[in-house]
Design a protein around this nucleic acid. Sequence first.
DNA 1: CTAACTCCCTGATAGC
DNA 2: TGCTATCAGGGAGTTA
Length: 271
Amino acid sequence: MPELPEAESISRALDKALKGRTIRQVEVFFPRLRTSLEPLKTAGLEGLKFVSVKRRARYSVCELSDGRFLVMHYGMSGVVRVESKDIPRRKHEHLFITLDNGLIVKFEDPRRFGMVEVQEKGPDGWPKGLQGIGVEPLDKAFSGKFLFAASRGKKKPVKEFIMDNAVVTGIGNIYAAETLFACKVSPLRKACDLSEEECERIVKEVKRILKLAIKWGGTTVSDYKNVDGSEGKFVQKLRIYGKNVCPVCKAKVEKAVLGGRTSWYCPACQC
DNA sequence: CTAACTCCCTGATAGC
DNA sequence: TGCTATCAGGGAGTTA
């Protein structure tokens, strides 16, 4: 599924493919995603140009020439392609945006947790719907001191805490598990019990792992037409997520459900 | 305010 | 072989 690194890669690819292009036509085939696609039909997109595409959290944020944004989220199974109209529409392609060069931006999402919306610009220059979300994990603002301060008084498990988008954006279940394994912190620990040194370690590993994954995601997305090519290479780098045996000490990996998500951890290495 | 839950959805896989 | 049950996941929303 598209995680932050994939969202980053997709957004970079979209920036190249869409920048300067004019929207000619918008077609909705099935509107019921996380939010309805219906409003796109009457949003007056035809004739507008794409100015740029950036990533924020796991969203692709496409700036339009009238100052509004086309905001996309890929949910669990969202895929976006820019390709010829001659390729037949796939079963779960719910939205087509035809460009002035004849190519079509196609949004596919079998599980329909994705989102495509037109949003106005908010006070901070990002779309209105993205106001008030947490810091970007790769920004300088995401530091050990920040995480330590934010975790004071938070009794929830540390894994849920670092997955909280109001604190820091874009860390999903897989990255949370991999990060906590890498820095030897148990996902079950209460956030408020973390030391400042542990927060430093968590932040360092989040950044290292995300950067690594972006590097790998970037490689695979160059073959952008390949639907599932982007997942394969990252999966090989996983050390704890979905594993049975700890790659370090060979102990049996434990599973716990935190915040409704399965969490894998090594009870010997992570404390 | 936090925390703990539910819901949305399809496809892959496990079990009978 | 074909059925049903289970699970995976992000984010928003609701409840206590």
